[in-house]
Amino acid sequence: MKSARLPSVGAVLILAVVLAWTLFPILWQALTSVKPDTDLVQLPPLLPLHPTLDHYEALFQQHPFSRVLLNSFAVAVFTTLAALTLGMLAAFPLARLPIRGKTLVLGLVLGCSMFPAIVTVGPLFIIIRALGLRDTWWALLISHTTFALPLTIWVLTNFLRELPEDLYRAARVDGCSPWQAFVRILLPLCRPGLTAAGILAFLFSWTEFLYAFTFTATEASRTVPVAIALFPGLHEIRWGEIAAASIVVTLPVLALVLLFHRHIVSGLTAGAVKG
């Protein structure tokens, strides 16, 4: 570790500009969400003089926002679980077992993630309608998993490759079958990689819009990003409630990242630096 030193004035300035650039919209939304409707349209904009939670109340009472949050949450959690399970099952053989054409498989996996969502959304819609899965969690779970999986496989494969090969071999000699060696030795050591990949999958699913917009029709499966987009009514745009909704969906993401940010960094840089 290098000893900490004071950052230069230039660095602080650049940092300040970048922070302002990224944080200001969020701050603006936060302020908007607690302003009464009357203050919202005032120019010049003011700091909220009479902070109120009206918009948050309206969010949950005048809209089926709890249901939408539940949809989002369920889809994101199940997508994460599916991506991690399938991703780990794919990553282990790709990283450890002697299989022909591994590089080709990894290349194809990467290739899959190169398609823009807009290209696949049409065909996927037809498939999902044919399967009768429209407007269900399944539609989103499956489509989100296919999108999150390539990244998960790559992160986990690299992570597994970084684990010393002798650990797996030692487990085999100590009496493990390949599956036991995987579950009892490699899996517990993959926690940072799983955390990083899991958070990425969760974030992807949580914020995904295009598939969610296309495959859902009602509150039965509609997710938060879609719901927010559909807030604007016929005659008015309810800025206050949109802002409140934005803040509500940002909080879990923020919590996740703060809780695990060390894992995310170490998980993503696995392979980049030798320990």
């Binding site: 010393p164 002798d166 650990l167 071999r169 030692a170 487990a171 085999r172 000699v173 100590d174 009496g175 493990c176 079958s177 030795i185 517990p188 050591l189």
Partner: peptide
């Protein structure tokens, strides 16, 4: 398969299981 051969091996890297204590490492086989 390795588990049916009844051999034990000491590796150059030692290959101790980092998430297990010394006791658990010894007990594992």
């Amino acid at each position: 398969s390795p588990k049916d051969r009844d051999v034990a091996m000491v590796f150059q890297s030692y290959a101790l299981y980092p998430h297990k204590t010394v006791y658990e490492n010894l007990a594992f086989p």
